[in-house]
Write a protein that binds this DNA or RNA. Structure first.
Lengths: 233, 233
DNA sequence: CTCCAAAATTAGGCTACCATAAATTTGGTT
DNA sequence: AACCAAATTTATGGTAGCCTAATTTTGGAG
């Protein structure tokens, strides 16, 4: 009496739903109906309806009024989409000079159309990159994701050196602003000030010694790794 | 009292219809309902229905029971798709090592998802190629197509030198076979035999002096340009 | 000039997905 | 413990696009 898993013919819509459910989950945000609705710009009843269909297809389990959880098959499908998206971003940025603020949108549409073959060719051309242009890890073909432990810029104690590792944001406007501050994944800096009450963070960028003030909300989206001073301090 | 032209929001389906209508037209084949249906693998009534919608959108004119004709807007949209398809084929072949027998299928799906921006970046990277890997001309961004005068291999008189210029076929099997004969766009040869009654054509390939026998049906799809012998003969 | 087969269209249905309005369930507050 | 607001689901309806079956039109053969 095996569960009737319908043929895994994923449409663009189902791929989108699976991807955002996975991504919300990995952000620690509960994948509620309303959250999914906002993320996909659809009305909540549309989400309820789709949850039902996805549950029937065996891609997730749905406890009415409680929430959803991806099954193994659902997780696999979601990770495949995440890999596609990030490999595309990496390729477009590296080989076709896309800027990191516009590349998300292009990848968003392409991820549904490319073949696995093409994704692997792109990945190979780039020598199997481990991170996308925003610093997000690219799942492997077999579905493994490396999750580096990163800490929000708002949580780095004053005085510490750190490197920007990943920008959570996707809005072109914000990304352009972040770039204008001289920040992109890999850039190192020292936190030299941190105001209380959701106040701004001040950092000094190592490369050019420039000091930059970063508002709390923006800083929250900048995930960093602490750089241990190798010898002195 | 201008015609109410609805917003030009083209779906994947409408893009496909416009493209095949255009392509059938430029092949000299009448764009009948049944022909379109076969080309798109849909039932004839589906075509009738779509013709109605496309006519309402101002992309073509439809005289019931008579046929369709693309309007200027329709032609523009169709040429845009043709450009997309061919630029994609050229890019994938040149930069991602696709073989000419598999590239069509990939481009077929991507053509609906890429932005104009991406197509232009690809074209620029390739230095604005004029032909795709099968030798088909790539329309310019402004919608101009160069139509070189080509003659089917079956119509070349025995003794003439010619160069393969374009392969009309898209079936992977046929393309692989053609390739196995040592033929691809640009290859020169001399026609040394031509049997009557839809018989095969025999050619001698210039590059390696190999003689190849080519069945009539296949030869019909090989479009060539006569190479005038510059001095002697 | 009539008739018939082929081609095309209309009629009627289905699925996937979206939306709005009307229930329903949940969980915290009093 | 009852109630209410928020979250969610159900009910209902719409569009795009596909299908099969039934009907209509066309154009050539006799």
């Amino acid at each position: 009496m095996t569960a009737a898993v319908k043929d895994p013919l994923l449409t663009r819509s189902t791929e989108d739903y699976l991807k955002v459910i996975y991504e919300l989950g990995s952000k620690g945000v509960a994948a509620q109906t309303s959250t999914i609705a906002v993320a996909l710009s659809v009305a909540p009843p549309s989400v309820s309806g789709m949850m039902k269909r996805l549950a029937e297809s065996g891609l997730l389990t749905h406890t009415p009024y409680r929430g959803v959880e991806l099954t193994e098959a659902g997780k696999r499908a979601a990770l495949r989409m995440v890999r596609r998206h990030r490999v595309l971003e990496a390729y477009l940025t590296s080989k076709l000079s896309y800027s990191w603020d516009t590349v998300h949108e292009e990848a968003e549409r392409l991820e549904h159309a490319v073949s696995d073959e093409l994704i692997e060719r792109m990945a190979l051309t780039l020598d199997n990159p481990r991170f996308d242009p925003h610093g997000a890890p690219i799942p492997t073909e077999s579905g493994d994701v490396e999750i580096p432990d990163r800490i929000s810029l708002t949580d780095i104690p004053v005085g510490k050196r750190a490197a920007l590792s990943m920008v959570g944001d996707r809005e072109p406007e914000r990304l352009r602003f972040i770039e204008s501050l001289g920040l992109k994944p890999g850039v190192r800096f020292v936190v030299i000030g941190q105001q209380p009450f959701q106040g701004p963070v001040t950092i000094q960028i190592e490369h050019d010694d420039r000091e930059e003030i970063i508002g709390h909300e923006l800083a929250e989206g900048l995930l960093c790794t602490i750089v241990e001073d190798s010898d002195d301090e």
